[in-house]
């Protein structure tokens, strides 16, 4: 019999603690598969965040750090700068990366650190029980904005991919989604491209994943996929926002 589906050796066999229907698990799998396909696993060091994926160090089948809340890009900088032959990635939620860790991500990107950030945007703080995130949608309810996010009070959700794409430093910046099999297949290609750029020592690479949190959105897994498609996609447009090639012929300084 031909084997058509199997565990990825990029992940450990430990069952994850993610809620049913949560797409953190899908994104883990894409990362694990990519590390295997590119032959990177044995020289990879991942950095787990604080958030629902805090235990990611138990799931990725490579050397792993657990960082403090928001600081994964700084930890990755320390690792990659001192051992440049390693493949280094951070895996971070939206509270971790876009709130408490905003300084670290912007400056890592701006220095052109040669690692990959996997940014899981689920528009909420999952781990702490559904509080408002910097990425929470306008009028979306959360436990700290029970009447829905008031943009006059909390501002508009931050589009991190677009924000990082404004930096002059060459980088690969993209936003993908995993709410449907089609998009998941595309997301994998983009992720692969990011790790390839890293392996070439080319540039900083950033992939934002739109992800679901059925538990704190108060929706079933299927409803969550639809909500992501209807509410998040129009605001968080998918696609590659910046490529290192864009820089060629760009500003040059003496």
């Amino acid at each position: 019999m031909k084997k058509i589906f199997a565990y990825s050796d990029g992940l450990t066999r430990k069952p994850t603690h993610y809620c049913p229907g949560c797409t953190h698990g899908v994104i883990h799998r894409l990362v694990g598969e990519t590390l295997m396909e590119l032959g990177l696993r044995e020289r990879t060091v991942g950095v787990a965040p604080v958030g629902c994926s805090v235990l990611a160090y138990e799931y990725f089948n490579c050397d792993m750090f657990e960082a403090s809340h928001g600081r994964a890009p700084a930890v990755a900088t320390g690792a990659k700068r001192t051992r440049p032959n390693l493949c280094v990635f951070t895996y971070q939620g939206d509270g971790d990366l876009a709130s408490i860790g905003m300084a670290e991500i912007v400056h890592a990107a701006n220095r052109g650190e040669k690692f990959t950030s996997i940014f899981v945007n689920n528009a909420i703080y999952g781990m702490t029980g559904g509080q408002m995130a910097p990425t929470t949608m306008p009028n979306q309810r959360a436990t700290t904005c029970p009447a829905g996010r008031d943009v006059n009070d909390a501002g508009y959700p931050i589009k991190v991919a677009e924000l990082l794409a404004t930096l002059t430093t060459p980088a690969f910046v993209a936003r993908v989604s995993v709410h449907s099999p089609q998009e998941t297949v595309k997301a994998k290609q983009v992720l692969r491209q990011a790790f390839e750029y890293q392996a070439e020592g080319r540039c900083y690479t950033f992939v934002e994943f739109l992800s679901t949190c059925p538990t704190n959105w108060g929706l079933s897994p299927r409803e969550s996929d639809s909500w992501l498609e209807q509410e998040m996609l129009p605001y968080y447009s998918l696609g590659i926002k910046k490529r290192p090639e864009d820089f060629e012929g760009g500003p040059k300084w003496k």
Binding site: S68, R71, A74, V75, A76, G78, A79, T82
Partner: peptide, 11 residues
Amino acid sequence: NMIYGAAGVGM
């Protein structure tokens, strides 16, 4: 946190 990263990779 950078020194955490550097020391963590044994440097």
